[in-house]
Amino acid sequence: MVKVHETKFELITTEDSLTEYQFHTHTHTARHFFCKTCGIYPFHRKRVSPDFFGINVYCLEGFETKGIPVRATVGTGMA
């Protein structure tokens, strides 16, 4: 995932091709989006930084990932 400000984000597919999972007990502000066809997880908005999207750059066509740091994460700590 690469963090991108919402003003720099452009969705190039229709919103109806995505499904959304919202969570955080009280606010539902953590939002994760998935492709309805293949199930890939292309992007999300975290509760702690709602003005930014986390973009799964590995599902972008023609995007060069060389030089992007990779770090291991524990999913339960990503709310």
Results as ranks from 00 to 15, higher is better:
I40L: 04
G77L: 07
Y21L: 10
I55R: 05
T76S: 11
H26P: 06
F23A: 05
K8E: 15
P50I: 00
V74F: 11
T13H: 08
F9I: 12
G39Q: 00
V2W: 03
E64A: 11
I55H: 07
L60P: 04
L18V: 02
F34K: 03
T13Q: 09
I68L: 13
G67Y: 08
D16C: 01
M1E: 14
Q22A: 14
G75Q: 03
H44L: 14
G54T: 04
C59E: 04
I55Y: 07
T19L: 02
H44P: 07
V4M: 12
Y21I: 02
G54Y: 11
E6K: 15
H5N: 14
T13M: 12
G54V: 05
D51M: 11
S49M: 12
D51S: 14
E6I: 15
A72P: 01
P42L: 00
V2M: 12
G67H: 04
T29P: 00
F52A: 09
Y41V: 00
L60Y: 10
P42W: 00
D51P: 04
G67F: 02
L60M: 09
V48E: 15
F43D: 00
V48Y: 14
P69C: 07
D51L: 10
E6N: 15
E20K: 04
I40F: 03
T29D: 13
I55E: 01
T7H: 15
V70M: 09
G54L: 13
T27W: 03
F33H: 09
F63D: 03
M78K: 12
V4C: 09
V74I: 13
Y41Q: 06
L18N: 00
Q22M: 07
A79Y: 08
T29C: 11
P50A: 02
E20D: 00
I68D: 07
T65Q: 09
Y58A: 15
F23Y: 07
